[in-house]
Computed example of a mutant assay.
Amino acid sequence: MTISVPIKRALSHFAQVETWVFDLDNTLYPPHSDLWPKIDARITAYMAAMLGLDGLSARALQKHYYRAFGTTLSGLIHEYQVDPADFLRFVHDIDRSSLDPNPALAAAIAALPGRKLILTNGSHAHALATAKQLGIDHLFDDCFAIEHGDYLPKPHLQTYQRFFDRHAVDPARAAMFEDIVHNLEVPHASGMLTVLVKPKEGAEDFREDWEKHEVAPPHVDFVTDDLAGFLAGLVR
């Protein structure tokens, strides 16, 4: 397990955490899993069929929207007023059987004191199905999915504010676990402890190049490549 603890923070800060917030994709399951590539491919297929584009053109536009708007869906809503429910049903209709249950992660999350919430740019149905496949769905009190933020994704400030309000979260007594650096900026500025979950060294990583950071910026309090081990260490 790799843990980086910046001087400005110590593990003892987690003693005051009463709400534990987890991103879903590439955080609760590792980035070398094939789940995200499956979703990614279905997004490309959706755009190709909808816009009459070849695969390469659809994928290029998909990645442009993703970076410019935070999600491809946000770009499609902005440019084409696409039906978000239809889009989410299609892109999250994947086989999750390749994702193994994670008993170590389940035990570590179960041992945490306080509430556990999922905050994801994916759909509510996708979050529940994926958490169930991991064997951790019963451990979470609730899930704030993209539809609960009116399809405005992280890292928008308004989305986090809606999340805080909906679940009565006190950021000063909460921690956020996330695989994308810029999605931790608002949580940190709001007073949350922030933990960047990264792949193990040498492991396959299907995220976009701009989502990967070798050096954690100041708004990241901790870095780990072993979420279950990190959480278990906090409880110990």
Rank of each mutant, 00 (worst) to 15 (best):
E147L: 03
V169Y: 08
P155F: 01
A174M: 04
L139N: 11
Q133A: 15
F177N: 03
A129W: 05
T194G: 10
H188K: 15
S190L: 12
T159P: 09
T120K: 08
Q158M: 02
P187R: 09
R162T: 04
D137S: 14
E147A: 12
H148P: 04
A145N: 12
E178I: 05
I118T: 12
D141R: 09
D179M: 07
I146E: 00
E147Q: 14
M192F: 07
A189L: 07
Y160D: 01
P153G: 10
A125W: 04
S123N: 02
Q133M: 12
D170I: 05
H182M: 08
E185A: 12
E178Y: 03
L196I: 00
S190H: 06
L117Y: 02
A127L: 06
A172E: 11
L128F: 05
Q133R: 15
Y151M: 08
T194Y: 11
T120P: 05
G149V: 05
R173G: 02
V195H: 12
G149D: 09
Y151G: 07
G135N: 10
R166I: 07
F163C: 09
V186R: 03
I180H: 00
P155E: 00
G149I: 06
A129N: 15
I180P: 02
D165N: 10
H182L: 09
G135Q: 05
I146W: 09
L184M: 15
E147V: 07
F144S: 00
S123C: 06
H148A: 13
R173T: 08
A125F: 07
L117Q: 00
T159D: 01
I180F: 01
A129Q: 14
A131R: 06
D165K: 10
H182R: 15
A172C: 08
A168Q: 14
F177W: 07
D137M: 01
L128W: 15
L128M: 14
T159C: 04
K198P: 09
A174L: 02
I146V: 13
F144C: 02
E147T: 01
I146Y: 07
A125T: 13
H156I: 02
L117T: 05
I146H: 07
R166S: 14
R166L: 13
D150M: 04
P187K: 10
V181C: 07
F177K: 03
T130Y: 08
N121T: 04
H148Q: 14
M176A: 10
S123Y: 04
D137L: 10
D179P: 03
V197N: 07
H188N: 13
T194M: 12
V181F: 02
G191F: 10
I136M: 13
F177Q: 06
A174G: 00
L157Q: 09
N183H: 15
L117D: 03
H167V: 08
L128I: 13
Q161K: 10
L134C: 13
A129S: 14
A168N: 13
L193F: 00
H182E: 12
Q161V: 04
V195R: 08
N183W: 01
A129P: 01
T120S: 14
P155V: 06
Y151Q: 02
L139T: 11
F140P: 00
R162H: 05
P199V: 08
I180S: 10
L128V: 14
H124N: 14
F140H: 05
D170G: 00
T130H: 09
A189M: 04
I146L: 14
L157A: 09
R173E: 01
T194L: 11
P171A: 07
K198N: 04
I180V: 15
